[in-house]
Nucleic acid binder design. Structure first.
Length: 285
DNA sequence: TAAATCCTGTCA
DNA sequence: TGACAGGATTTA
């Protein structure tokens, strides 16, 4: 579910209810969701800590706690992380795996039907969590420059769609936004990254920033599961140009949107706007 | 580089 | 009943 815009929206919507609060109790219903540290380490050390700040790195939420601890949360494919002012009548929903009771009587709720997510407590996530350690720059930050993108595309192999999904190249892009970015940049998802012309690389760079910013502005994309930190769905699904639109007319040229499989993922594109031969050098991949 | 894997839920 | 789903890691 959650890509950069969704995780960023969760961060922003949860912060007003969590920052400044203290974690009074923690309840782990499904021990398997705690990965990367011992459960007892988490439960023993998190009690009494104040949530000082909430950061995001790629698709990770980082809850900075007092005394140097960080609660690391990844939502996987179907995870939800939200604030609830009180326990709902009839109890928390199915698949609520971890609960944090705050000192205002509210809860931070971690719910994940497919269990692909993870939670752990550590002191230096940027060093201890390898996915974060190896992660590429933030596409909406200053460290991700066009020069960086051009140089990386030059040395990597593979299709551009797959490269956009690689968190070690650029952090936070997932299947929906990769397709929307490539449509915005008029680049076929199966083009090899190395074959992009300087002009196309420049377009891609702009499209990454533009589309992700749009996603954040519309508070994320809700296809089915995703809700923000207060349980509110996003709006960007109303603005998707290609993702999930197989067979529908392209909003630009009215050609039928196609669906293919790239790197094991469903991939939607316009065969005319994103022509495979556009600016193509020679090779395939 | 691709496919299998971890899971449950939903839809055709 | 089978295919597929917003992710990431492991394996062949």
């Amino acid at each position: 579910m959650p890509e950069l815009p969704e995780v960023e929206t969760v961060r922003r919507s949860i912060a007003p209810h969590a920052v400044g609060r203290t974690i009074e109790r923690v309840k782990v219903n499904l021990p398997g969701m705690v990965k990367g540290c011992e459960i007892t380490y988490l439960t023993d050390n998190i009690i009494g800590k104040e949530i000082k700040r909430i950061d995001r790195r790629g698709k990770f939420l980082l809850l900075r706690l007092s005394q140097g601890y960080t609660l690391v949360v990844h939502l996987g494919m179907s995870g939800r992380f939200y604030y609830a002012g009180e326990e709902p009548y009839g109890g928390f929903p199915k698949h609520t795996h971890v609960l944090f009771l705050l000192n205002d009587g509210g809860f931070l709720v971690y719910n994940d039907p497919r269990r692909f997510g993870r939670i752990n407590l550590c002191r230096q996530p940027e060093k201890e969590v390898s996915a974060i350690r190896l992660m590429g720059p933030e596409p909406l930050g200053n460290s991700c420059t066009m020069d960086y993108l051009r140089d990386e595309l030059k040395k990597r192999r593979g299709k551009i769609k797959q490269l956009l999904l690689d968190q070690n190249l650029i952090a936070g892009i997932g299947n929906i936004y990769a397709d929307e970015i490539l449509f915005d940049a008029c680049i076929h998802p199966e083009r090899s990254g190395q074959s992009l012309t300087p002009l196309e690389t420049a377009r891609l760079f702009q499209s990454i920033r533009r589309v992700l910013n749009q996603g954040v502005r519309h508070r994320g994309t809700t296809i089915s599961d995703y809700v923000d930190g207060r349980g509110v769905p996003g709006e960007f699904q109303k603005h998707l140009k290609v993702y999930g639109r197989e067979g529908e007319p392209c909003s630009v040229c009215a050609s039928e949107i196609q669906r293919i499989r790239v790197a094991g993922r469903s991939t939607y594109f316009c065969p005319v706007c994103q022509c495979l031969e556009q600016g193509k050098g020679s090779e395939g991949d």
